[in-house]
């Protein structure tokens, strides 16, 4: 599948203070975003998500590595012509009205005012801000500013949309609207790269994920496949055996629930676990395949330490 964005061996470090030691933010990060996909960029705080997006958008200069957008060098202005970007917690000049702000951004994107005006009206309607279009933004709530942020990202009808925490500050209804909007954009052919802490949002919207930790990719691929591959099996016993009698693989664990005692075992170790149970005299009532949730997958890949940082 053609990649609209490809990042290869990206390294980036920051000085913690002038002349002080440097902190490694990205360490050889690489990933690609296929056309017409919705890709979630995940990672605990400090993993390098925002730095990655800043490098992609030309706001930060990588130490080394390559970024290509629509086949062009990421630093080129032309590469950004078909990209819409929503930074984390977008800020605007609050003395402007949303309409004036979007007209200004339209000029920067090379749009004629005559072409920009109807587009702006459409977008303000799309994000539910048409009634506030001509009010200065100094009295807007965080959620209202976030909606304006989404509108500005969509202004130039981007083919690639890069969103950093798009649901931040939105109320539950607003979050739902954003999800519906992103689904609708995706079905219309827009490629989306989405960074979010809200795993349920990623799981619902994205068809692919990239998980990064300490500036490196730790997992990437089609979401369904990843969750399926890492899934586990649930073994329900007809006749329980004492735990001590069955030498189960170290990766397996016992769980209690409504259906009695169950053994949870990774798919790869299922045969060994079953053999061990049968040898110990247990009878197997049922073996079920269980797909991981994204949260479980994330915790497994990042590890307990990373999750605690996140929480």
């Amino acid at each position: 599948m053609e990649a609209v964005l490809s990042v290869e061996d990206l390294w980036k470090s920051y000085a913690t203070r002038p002349g002080g030691p440097r902190r490694q933010a990205l360490s050889g990060l690489g990933f690609s975003v296929p056309r017409n996909s919705v890709v979630g960029l995940l990672g605990p705080n400090g993993a390098g998500k925002t730095t990655t997006l800043k490098c992609v958008m030309g706001l930060a200069r990588p130490d080394s590595g390559s970024i290509r957008i629509f086949g062009r060098d990421g630093g080129a202005v032309e590469a950004r012509r078909k990209v819409g970007f929503l930074p984390e917690q977008p800020y605007f000049d609050l003395y402007l009205t949303p309409r004036k702000l979007l007209l200004y951004y339209g000029r920067l994107a090379g749009m004629e005012a005559s072409a920009a005006r109807p587009r702006i009206s459409y977008l303000l309607n799309l994000v539910g801000m048409e009634d506030e279009a001509d009010i200065t933004m100094d009295k807007f709530s965080k959620g209202m500013l976030q909606r304006i942020g989404l509108a500005q990202a969509l202004l130039a009808e981007p083919e690639l949309l890069i969103l950093d925490e798009p649901s931040s500050g939105l109320d539950p209804l607003g979050k739902l609207q954003v999800r519906d909007m992103l689904k609708s954009l995706s079905s219309g052919g827009t490629t989306i790269l989405l960074s979010s802490h809200q795993l349920s949002e990623i799981e619902e919207i994205c068809d692919r994920v990239i998980i990064i930790h300490k500036g490196r990719e730790v997992a990437s691929g089609a979401l369904a496949e990843l969750l399926e591959e890492e899934g586990e099996c649930e073994v329900l016993l007809g006749k329980p055996v004492p735990e001590s009698m069955a030498t189960i693989p170290p990766t397996a664990s016992w769980a209690e629930g409504g259906e009695g005692k169950r053994l949870l075992v990774p798919r790869d170790d299922l045969n060994a676990a079953l053999a061990s149970l049968l040898e110990a005299g247990a009878s197997i009532a049922e073996v079920r395949s269980r797909r991981l949730s994204l949260e479980e997958f994330f915790v497994r890949r990042i590890g307990k330490q990373g999750w605690e940082v996140e929480g």
Binding site: K54, M57, G58, L59, V77, E78, R80, R81, V83, F85, P87, Q89, P90, Y91, F92, D93, Y105, L108, A109, G110, G149, Q152, A156
Partner: peptide, 14 residues
């Protein structure tokens, strides 16, 4: 400081 620069310089401008 206000981070408004992100919205402007992420556009196709030099």
């Amino acid at each position: 400081g206000r981070r408004t620069i992100y919205n402007t310089l992420s556009r196709p401008v030099r």
